[in-house]
């Protein structure tokens, strides 16, 4: 292993002014974060499947619950494959300082889905009720996922994380 030169000398001798060097570093950070961000279509695959599963389950029959479970399982696999193929970075900020506490987000989401699933709606409301629920659940889930991703990107750009947060 060769030893690099460490020098506290003149930065301009090495070709860049300090301001220029910091500007280049910032530009490189920003570009790397932009290129490796999780694409919106991966989230879209997940929320479409999630919405379809929840919407199907609102019919509240044994058959529709099974179909909903199958749709959800397929969604998980499809999202995992899409995420893997579009994955260009390792390391997400995992600390307790996201835009909204993640546990709370999931709790609210779960409560909404549970309450919607328990609502006794007349059969004549279907399939419009199920379709409406699917669209609302998918829309809210999409907004939540994108907000989380944008929050991650903002913090990565600023270097706003602790020694053990980037995992």
């Amino acid at each position: 292993m060769s030893t690099p030169q460490h020098d506290s000398g003149d930065p301009q001798r090495a070709g860049l002014t300090p301001e220029g060097a910091l500007e280049q570093a910032h530009t490189a950070r920003t570009a790397a974060i932009r290129v490796t961000a999780r694409p919106w279509w991966v989230d879209l695959i997940f929320v479409v499947g999630l919405g379809a599963a929840v919407g199907t389950a609102t019919a509240r029959t044994a058959l529709t619950w099974v179909v909903a479970a199958v749709i959800f399982a397929i969604t998980i696999v499809a999202t995992a494959v899409a995420d893997r193929r579009s994955h260009h970075r390792h390391g997400r900020i995992l600390d307790l300082r996201p835009a909204v506490f993640p546990g709370l987000t999931y709790l609210i989401g779960y409560a909404v889905v549970f309450l919607v699933g328990q609502m006794p709606v007349p059969p004549s409301w279907q399939p419009w009720w199920g379709s409406g629920v699917a669209v609302v659940v998918a829309g809210l889930a999409f907004l939540s996922l994108r907000a989380d991703e944008l929050h991650q990107l903002r913090r990565l750009r600023r270097g706003d994380y602790g020694p053990y947060d980037l995992v």
């Binding site: 790397a32 390792h90 390391g91 990565l156």
Partner: peptide, 9 residues
Amino acid sequence: AALDTATAL
């Protein structure tokens, strides 16, 4: 600078 934004790229 780019690598500093991730554990690996």
